[in-house]
Design a protein around this nucleic acid. Structure first.
Lengths: 142, 142
DNA sequence: TTCATAAATGCAATTTAGTTGCAAATATAC
DNA sequence: GTATATTTGCAACTAAATTGCATTTATGAA
């Protein structure tokens, strides 16, 4: 069943009004193979969308479970489209991320994070696993 | 062999001059059981050390492998003393971190991160594993 | 102990990230 | 087409982080 990424559907499904700005943000986030950083988005969309609006849209998307937010090694926010399994209240983002230390891009890998038993008293609700190194492209170029 | 944390030794061993400011930062980072956030450090040391100097000291420590930097869920930097196995060029920080979503503290757990096979072309140099949830203290209080 | 020098610090100014309040614009449902 | 609640853009603000430069300080040699 292929029915990927119709912005209109995604927005309607999450009770968000269909606006030019929201569609543009969805497009930018979804059209690559890696996550997009907040600065990249701002640079790309800064002329068409106000900075503040961008922040608000990204927050709304994250709360609704439309995108997930990944912090890179510098503390910069990156955004990627969630798999269809994500919903606002059951946000399954438990796959491995790869953060390239050269181009700084973040990739969502199709690998599940292994379970780890926490020490007495500590209760893990979610986990994150990030590998740092060179991505396929940067590896070739060196 | 117990010979822990003599700031003088640590600094000399890494070719860093012994200054009042550097010693104070080392003290603050090492005297707790959890990592210390940049804002905490600034609050604690702001009267004795200039903000900029604090940033520079923390960066130097990280580069030398004296401390390791852990980003919490908000993109805030946290610092913890490295185990003795860390050096500037072989920075072994491959244990699991626990980030409490209530008090926001970060704990270094004595758990090794399981190995994961990367996809073709991706070469991981280091990995990070962070669990989010309630720490032992916050669990009790609820 | 004094002195020279390279390194570290503090300060001022700047850049970048993120937030808040409010008025104007606009998507949707009737 | 119109009413209304939502969204957007703007201005102003707070906080985080960086840069350049003058001053101070740690260290090693005389």
């Amino acid at each position: 069943m292929i029915m990927a990424l119709d912005p209109g559907n995604i927005l309607k499904a999450h009770d968000l009004k269909h606006t030019r700005q929201r569609v543009r943000v969805l497009e930018e986030i979804s059209h690559g193979q890696s996550a997009v950083s907040q600065p990249e988005l701002e640079k790309k969309l800064g002329k068409e969308i106000d900075r503040v609006t961008l922040y608000r849209i990204l927050n709304a998307y994250e709360e609704k479970g439309i995108v997930h937010k990944i912090m890179d090694a510098n503390g910069t926010a990156n955004y990627a489209i969630c798999s269809s399994a994500c919903t606002a209240h059951n946000h399954h983002d438990e796959h491995v991320h790869f953060n390239c230390t050269n181009c700084n891009k973040i990739f969502c890998l199709e690998l599940t994070i292994p379970e780890i038993k926490m020490p007495e008293g500590f209760k893990a609700k979610t986990v994150s696993f990030t590998a740092y190194g060179l991505c396929n492209k940067c590896n070739k170029e060196k």
